[in-house]
Design a protein around this nucleic acid. Structure first.
Lengths: 333, 333
DNA sequence: CACGCTTACGGGGGTCGTAACAATG
DNA sequence: CATTGTTACGACCCCCGTAAGCGTG
């Protein structure tokens, strides 16, 4: 036999004397009444407490009466304009103060959360994003909200997408690997072109000044970044659709190193557009697969707006604000 | 200019954003929601919390939602049948637990008060009452309610009546001296006859076997108890109305001593009826002012029933129960 | 008589219960 | 399919605000 709770008790919030021998028709002790009582004892006056609670005297007076009824003992007395607590009131005051402080702390905590004074932001990202794109907005965010603790975790795209529930925001490279939780939303973040870097004097630069299709690169010596590089994986994926497998030649630990190697004629390389600053007299940056180009897209995976933490919402806001100015710029590796 | 609190705000208990820059239309954080949240986190389930709160799931679910809205951050998530708290939820849980414990303590305190497991009983009384009439019912009371701390204070009738507000019960001898607070109620307690003790062979015993009027005692040698004796004051008061002042002769420190002195023929004495146990071959106990006799009345001054502490009510109950059986009996001085 | 606490009374909104839906194992 | 959590909706009652009463300095 399962208890359908108070099925036939219309008494919404009342005596609550289920399976309780207590035949007392007393109203049960409400936390809010304790709050009022704590304030009354602190201020020594019902009217002052009412003022601070933004209600009229009569309301607080009624709360005090209900608390007294719930306790069953008189709690205080007003004589010669001053408040006097009975022993029971004195004792109850301690509990009321404890409750009051707890609620005040909770409210203060909520307030700090809302004002972004406090909070935690758990983000997951790939090493590439963590190295190139996130540091700048992150320091800006921390500068703006110094109280928010940011906890980062890096992992493969598939891994962090699978554990998306554990994070406020997940920064991934597209196309998404793995499956995100059902109602998560994908927000486009950065869309950047991947360019081919070759010597100006090379055959490719001469033959394809307006851009080169990937299939023309077969047999070229390619300067790769390390295996988990985001750009490398994007290019490899593009090659994969063509079933072309360009032989790896050299692995460079940084984009800058790759550029230098390309300048020296050691091979061709793929870099994100933002890495190339200004014109280079010796190097050409060619569009890939013209006219659309090969684009590298970064996206943010987030819970639906209603389920976002304030910190996450603030960070997303900031990213969206500064996504046009492209403030993330070129960060040295 | 005084603030009439929310005069034109019909919003009974709502956003409460008076003079608060916060333009957030969030509901404010209710203590009861914290209680529900604490229970949810403790039990790890909304339905279990609902069971224990004697409400349906939906109600608790709604409370959880309102708390989340009030905080502005998601608090928990339900995945694979288990509860997972977000960082904000984890933090809020601490405050919620504190509040929950405080409220539980307050409720437990109220319960103990109602069951008379705990409490304080502050009583005021005259030394006479404290010596003769109160000890017996008091030990019975303490035996029945061992958890209730009894605090006694003795003083003159006028003094303790004046400070009646400081006590749960005031035991006085009538007629009352001084003025009690306006709405205090007087409960008759003990009504006992004061008898005149004389030698059987004395003239008084011979002339007035059915009782003697006070005016016939003029010139007698009176054996008094000490000045603050209740019986002595009662008799003196009776004498006072007649404007007779019987010369004091001897002061005895105890009722028993007074009786012995009377037996020895040292004078006549006044004692409460209960002090005389059984017949005495040498002594006669004469009614005073027949046929009504001279009565000594004890009364209890108490706040109106609604303002009585549970302990006071219990003690009064017990006294009323055992007032007929006269269980207070004769207590040796 | 100003001030503070209490009581009585009417109205609005919060909260409960019912019911239907979605997700999970 | 049983269990659990959520949403929608209607009804009830708590609580607030207004107003009057009352005691006190």
């Amino acid at each position: 036999m399962d208890i359908t709770p108070d099925s036939h008790s219309r008494d919404g919030r009342g005596t609550s004397k289920i399976a309780d021998g207590e035949a007392s028709d007393l109203p049960d002790l409400q936390p809010s009444h304790l709050l009022a009582f704590a304030l009354i004892t602190e201020l020594g006056s019902v009217s002052l407490a009412a003022r601070r609670l933004h209600v009229v005297q009569a309301a607080v007076s009624a709360q005090l009466r209900r608390l007294r009824e719930a306790v069953g003992d008189p709690l205080c007395r007003f004589e010669q304009g001053h408040l006097h607590l009975t022993p029971a009131g004195e004792e109850l005051r301690k509990h009321a103060l404890r409750v009051s402080e707890g609620v005040a702390a909770a409210r203060e905590f909520a307030r700090r959360l809302q004002r972004r004074i406090e909070g935690r932001l758990r983000i997951a990202l790939t090493v590439t994003i963590g190295s190139y794109y996130l540091p700048c907005p992150l320091v800006a965010f921390q500068d703006r909200y110094p109280g928010i603790r940011v906890e980062m975790e890096t992992g493969s795209s598939r891994e962090i997408v699978g554990r998306a529930e554990d994070f406020d925001l997940v920064f991934v490279e597209e196309p998404l690997e793995g499956s995100a939780p059902p109602d998560y939303v994908r927000t486009p973040w950065i869309r950047e072109e991947i360019l081919l870097v070759v010597q100006r004097k090379s055959r490719l630069a001469r033959d394809f000044p307006a851009g080169v299709a990937l299939r023309h690169l077969q047999g070229e010596k390619v300067l790769w970044r390390e295996a988990d590089s985001g750009v490398r994986r994007a290019v490899e994926r593009a090659f994969g659709t063509l079933r072309i497998e360009p032989p790896g030649h050299t692995e460079l630990p940084s984009a800058q190193g790759l550029i230098e190697a390309a300048r020296a004629g050691l091979g061709i390389g793929f870099v994100a557009a933002s890495v190339l600053s200004g014109e280079d007299p010796e190097l050409a940056a060619l569009r890939i697969n013209p006219p659309e180009g090969l684009w590298w897209r970064l996206a943010i995976l987030a819970p639906p707006p209603a389920q976002r933490s304030a910190a996450a919402a603030a960070f997303l806001d900031q990213l969206q604000q500064s996504s046009d100015p492209m403030a993330h710029g070129d960060v040295p590796v």
